[in-house]
Amino acid sequence: MTSTFPDISLSTERLVLRPYDEADIPELVEMMNDDLVTAWTGVPWPYTEAAARAFVSTAGPAERRSGRGLVLAVTEMLTQRLVGTVQLQNTDWRIRGTEIGYLTASWARGEGYAGESVLAVVRWLFASQGFERVELRTAADNTASQQVAQKIGCISEGVLRNAGVIRSRPDDDPHGRWAETRTDLLVWSLLPEDLDDADGTGEFAGRTGGDGYDPGYDSAYAAYRGHADYSAAAHRR
């Protein structure tokens, strides 16, 4: 039985999902220095070129080789511009289950890219990799990310109380120091039959276009924690 994901690329009508390479570093730095990404994820701040290079060359590929997950850059098919990231993490090969995370660059928000890319990965997992469960976790106050989960058909399973950490600036001061606070995490899931039912009824029709439900800081909560542990586990402390 395989215990690592293949080195793959996926495509949708508008997007190409592929491994990161060095040419992505400038756009990656720009994407990760957005305030909403800093607030909802565990990325280093400020996010430097050195951090991006370490992620692209070492931390990201190590996720796949170790069997823990898979990191894919999401790019526009026509322009090849980086629009976001989709990440698999905390993979359990015995039960064929994994956790998915996602975020979108600030300039690409509102185009439905998060839902489109996540559904592409989930369908690939179920159809080609024999997976039986995909889990997603969102911070309790991250309503925009919750809307993405709902829009793609995720089932709400419950709340992990006080299980995550988010960041904010006191009094919303744009120049203030980021401070960490604890938060509940909402748990969502998708099973193969969830997509089978939706595809059979046309429920997902139109969900990957400009539906207004792609806020760009969508995340299964905790990607990029210092590139040492690229997973939500880094926040469960």
Rank of each mutant, 00 (worst) to 15 (best):
T2A: 01
T2Y: 00
S3C: 08
F5S: 04
T12C: 03
E13C: 07
R14L: 07
L15I: 05
V16M: 01
L17Q: 05
Y20F: 15
E27R: 14
M31V: 00
N33R: 00
L36E: 15
A39K: 09
P44E: 10
P44N: 04
W45Q: 11
E49Q: 06
E49R: 02
A52T: 00
R53D: 08
A54S: 02
V56R: 02
R64G: 00
R64W: 00
G67C: 07
G67L: 04
V71H: 03
A73V: 00
T75P: 02
G84E: 11
T85R: 11
V86G: 02
V86M: 01
Q87E: 11
Q89A: 10
R96N: 15
Y102S: 13
L103Q: 10
T104L: 15
W107L: 09
R109W: 02
E111D: 09
G112P: 05
Y113F: 13
Y113A: 04
E116I: 09
E116M: 06
A127L: 09
Q129L: 13
Q129F: 01
G130D: 05
G130H: 06
E132F: 07
R133D: 14
E135W: 06
E135Q: 14
L136K: 04
R137L: 15
T143D: 10
A149G: 09
C154D: 04
R167K: 14
S168F: 14
P170A: 11
P170S: 10
D171E: 11
D172R: 14
D173R: 03
R177S: 13
R182N: 00
T183I: 13
D184W: 01
L186F: 13
V187A: 10
S189E: 06
L190G: 00
P192L: 11
D194W: 05
D196A: 15
E203R: 13
F204D: 13
A205M: 01
G209L: 09
D214T: 11
G216K: 05
Y217R: 01
S219C: 14
A222R: 08
S231L: 09
A234M: 02
H235L: 15
